[in-house]
Structure formats: structure tokens, C-alpha cells
């Protein structure tokens, strides 16, 4: 039987700020280059998300206004989303999408209710944290690089960060931890977009999706020469 992975891109009309389509493109190319079927479905704001369809779900970044629209929409599906995550479904959440994973996102007096998928919360701080960023994660050997641009500061509860900050800000002003990893959920402020320059992380996420669906992944290695050059160059910037 030929393997096949289905990716759900949630609300790209609203959450598409930082080249998020690059992440989708990266995942699907890295599947097809290995002769694994890849299917992408863009989920529209007036559709319900049928989580059981998907092996991977991506939630990207948007403006505060757009984030709020998304949150209102997803509130009705909180339970199903939680079940997907607890069952080991792969969820990639970036920037604004990452902030939605927690209990809430406090902007001044406004409190946007989060999806409560991960033990964390976010509060808007003084000024924005903007710049190139490099972190070291336990799940991939090569440092992860990207660009961060966020006003919210995220604080983790009883969960592990995606990595340690080598250079840049990360989750908040303490410059220590970046992102979150919980079951097969990866949340992060890194865009750039995240996945093309960090092929190790892309393959980690694809493996998790394949393992959940087929019991094993057995990803054949790809020639990542260009990915590594771009990654090394970006590391020098931060």
C-alpha cells in the first residue's frame, strides 16, 4: 500500500502572515520527493475542521484582529482539537497560531480565550521582539533558525520548550526558552518560514505523522545541501 499524508492548513485566508505557505510546500515536497502521497486541504473559515481526516494540521500567524476571528471560530471545536492532540496528531503552530494554543492571550485589558491544548499562556509585553533567532532543540541536531516578530510573551507551564535560545529572544524577555513541544505538537515563534531552512524538524514532524498512521516512518534521507547552506547563513545573522 502506498503511504499517504493529509495536511490541513487552517484558515490560510486569515493566518498567512509570514510565508506560511512555504511550510506547507516544504512538507508536501519532502513527502513527494520520497514517493509518499501528499494531500493538502485549505480549511476555510466557514467550514468545520474534520480533525479525523488529517495527519498534520498547521496553524499560522495573523494580525491580532485576525487571530481573534480564528479563536472565536475554533472555540466551538475545542474538544475535537484536544482529542486530535491527545491522540498524537501532529500540530504545527507558528507565531499567532502558537499563542492560541494556551489558556489565553492577554492584550491590555482584553483577554482572548485560548484553545487550551497546551499548558501555557501569553501576555502582551512592552514593545515587539523582532529579529533573527537561532535555537538548539533536543529533537534535531542542527540548530533551528528563523525570524521572530511578536508582541506577546509566552510562559510555559508543565511542558517542555522546543529549544534553548542561542541568539534572539524566544518565548519572552528572559531569552532562555523558545517554543513548546507537547506530544506531537510543536509551537514556535520562528518563521522565515520555519520548515524549509530546518529540514531536520520537517522530517521529525513527518516521521511522527507517519508513525501514528502506519506504525513506522522509515524516511529515506534527502540531499539537503541548499537547506543546510541557507540554515548556516541564517545562523551567522543572528
Amino acid at each position: 500500500m502506498e503511504k499517504h499524508v493529509k495536511i490541513g492548513h487552517l484558515y490560510p485566508d486569515l493566518l498567512n502572515l509570514y510565508g506560511d505557505r512555504g511550510n506547507i510546500r516544504c512538507l508536501s515536497k519532502r513527502l513527494t520527493w520520497r514517493n509518499i502521497g501528499a494531500e493538502v486541504k485549505e480549511v476555510h473559515i466557514d467550514e468545520n475542521v474534520n480533525f479525523s481526516e488529517y495527519d498534520i494540521v498547521l496553524l499560522g500567524g495573523g494580525s491580532d484582529r485576525e487571530q481573534k476571528l480564528v479563536c472565536d471560530r475554533l472555540a466551538a471545536q475545542k474538544k475535537e482539537f484536544k482529542a486530535f492532540v491527545e491522540d498524537g496528531g501532529v500540530l504545527i503552530a507558528i507565531c499567532g497560531g502558537y499563542q492560541l494554543l494556551g489558556a489565553y492571550y492577554q492584550i491590555g485589558k482584553d483577554k482572548i480565550q485560548g484553545l487550551e491544548l497546551v499548558d501555557m499562556y501569553t501576555k502582551q509585553g512592552e514593545g515587539r521582539l523582532i529579529g533573527n533567532i537561532t535555537i538548539q532543540s533536543d529533537i534535531v541536531k542542527m540548530p533551528l533558525t528563523g525570524f521572530e516578530n511578536h508582541g506577546g510573551r509566552t510562559y510555559l507551564g508543565d511542558v517542555e520548550p522546543l529549544g534553548k535560545v542561542i541568539h534572539g529572544f524566544g518565548n519572552n524577555d528572559s531569552k532562555e526558552a523558545e517554543g513548546v513541544i507537547y506530544k506531537n505538537v510543536v509551537g514556535t515563534y520562528l518563521h522565515g518560514p520555519l520548515l524549509p531552512k530546518n529540514p531536520g524538524l520537517s522530517d521529525y514532524l513527518l516521521s511522527k505523522a507517519l508513525e501514528r498512521k502506519y506504525g513506522d516512518a522509515n524516511l529515506t534521507p534527502l540531499d539537503d545541501k541548499e537547506e543546510l547552506m541557507a540554515n548556516e547563513y541564517a545562523q551567522k545573522l543572528s
Binding site: Y18, G19, N132, F147, H191, G192, P193
Partner: peptide, 15 residues
Amino acid sequence: NDNAQDGHDISWLWD
């Protein structure tokens, strides 16, 4: 380029 006047963030290339 990614100088200050270009914007340091080049993620737009993917758009």
C-alpha cells in the same frame, strides 16, 4: 538583500 531598508525578514519570498 536583507538590509534594514529591505526588511531583515525575508519570509515574503515564500508568498
